[in-house]
C-alpha cells in the first residue's frame, strides 16, 4: 500500500510540477516597429551639447539588439529663435554642437528634433530649471579602513530647498586624481543605501526643507608614490526638470527589478514624441575640496 502511494506520489510530482514550455501562437503578439531612441541632457554649464541616437528593436522577431549609433540622422535643437544642427562625432559616440552656437539659458524652452533617413522622426521639448538651491555644502570626514591600511573618505551633500515650487534634484560625487602630467582620472563616490542607484530627490512632501544626501564613501586612491598626486573631491547638485527626474527614477526601478519575474514591470519614462528616450535639462551646482 505504502509503496503504491509513494509511486503515485512521485509520478504525480514528476509530471505535475515539471512545468512545460511552448511557443505562444494563440494570442495577439506584441507588434512594434523599430523606434528612434534619443537621449540628451542640457544645462547652462555645458560647453558641448550632446545628443545620442540609437534605435529600438521589436521584442519579437529577427533583429538583433545593437548599441550602434544611428549616424545619418538630422539632429536640430532650437530655442525658438536660434537653431543649431548637430554633427556626429565618432569619438564622442554622439551628435555634438558647441554650446556657444546655442547658449542654454535657465528658464528658456528648447526643442530637439531628430529625423533619420528611414523617415522616422522624434521630437521633444524641455525648459531649463532656474537654479534655486541655497547653501549647497559638502561635509567630509575620513577614517582608516577596517580592512586595510587605506584611508577612506566619507562625504555628504547638504542644501536648502526653495519653498513654494516643485523641485527635483540629483546628486553625484567623484574624486578626480591628477598625477604628474597625466590627464585627470575620475572615480565615482558610492552612496549608502542602494549604492548603484542614481541619487534622486524631490521636495514633493518636503517643500522648503533642508536636504541631506546619504553618506557617500570612497577609498583614497593610491598611485605610484614617486609622482606627486593631487586628489580633489567634487560634489554636484543638479537642479533638474521633471523629465530628468522621472526618466532616471524609472531607470533605477528597472535596475532593481531586472530579472525578477514577480515585480511590477517598469515602464521607462519618455517625453520623446514618436520615439523613445528623453530630452531633459538641469542646472549644475559644483562644490569641490582638495583631499589631503
Amino acid at each position: 500500500m505504502n509503496k503504491r502511494i509513494l509511486f503515485i506520489f512521485t509520478f504525480s510530482l514528476l509530471i505535475g510540477f515539471s512545468a512545460c514550455e511552448k511557443e505562444v501562437t494563440n494570442i495577439k503578439l506584441p507588434q512594434a516597429s523599430s523606434k528612434l531612441v534619443v537621449t540628451s541632457f542640457i544645462s547652462p554649464q555645458d560647453t558641448l551639447l550632446r545628443v545620442s541616437v540609437v534605435e529600438s528593436i521589436p521584442a519579437i522577431g529577427k533583429s538583433t539588439l545593437s548599441s550602434n549609433d544611428i549616424r545619418n540622422a538630422t539632429v536640430t535643437m532650437s530655442d525658438g529663435d536660434r537653431s543649431v544642427t548637430f554633427t556626429y562625432h565618432d569619438t564622442d559616440h554622439a551628435y555634438v554642437a558647441d554650446a556657444e552656437e546655442l547658449p542654454i539659458i535657465q528658464g528658456n524652452k528648447y526643442t530637439l528634433e531628430v529625423n533619420d533617413t528611414k523617415g522616422r522622426k522624434a521630437a521633444a521639448t524641455c525648459t531649463v530649471p532656474i537654479n534655486q538651491p541655497i547653501g549647497v555644502e559638502m561635509v567630509i570626514d575620513s577614517a582608516k579602513s577596517d580592512y586595510a591600511d587605506f584611508m577612506q573618505y566619507y562625504m555628504m551633500l547638504n542644501w536648502q530647498d526653495t519653498p513654494g515650487e516643485i523641485n527635483y534634484y540629483r546628486i553625484f560625487a567623484e574624486i578626480a586624481t591628477t598625477q604628474g602630467s597625466h590627464s585627470p582620472f575620475s572615480q565615482r563616490v558610492y552612496f549608502e543605501g542602494s549604492s548603484n542607484d542614481i541619487q534622486l530627490f524631490t521636495d514633493n512632501r518636503l517643500d522648503g526643507a533642508k536636504f541631506s544626501s546619504s553618506r557617500g564613501s570612497i577609498w583614497k586612491p593610491s598611485y605610484n608614490p614617486d609622482y606627486p598626486t593631487a586628489n580633489t573631491l567634487f560634489g554636484y547638485l543638479l537642479n533638474t526638470d521633471e523629465h530628468y527626474y522621472r526618466y532616471h527614477q524609472s531607470l533605477n526601478n528597472n535596475y532593481h527589478t531586472d530579472g525578477n519575474p514577480f515585480a511590477e514591470p517598469v515602464l521607462l519614462y519618455s517625453n520623446m514624441n514618436g520615439g523613445l528616450g528623453v530630452f531633459a535639462s538641469y542646472n549644475r551646482n559644483t562644490v569641490s575640496m582638495p583631499l589631503k
Binding site: K35, P58, L65, Y236, N254, Y282
Partner: peptide, 13 residues
C-alpha cells in the same frame, strides 16, 4: 513590445 539601450546622464569628469 521592444528593446533598446537606455542611457543615464553621467555628470562630472
Amino acid at each position: 513590445i521592444g528593446e533598446y539601450f537606455a542611457k543615464p546622464h553621467q555628470p562630472g569628469g
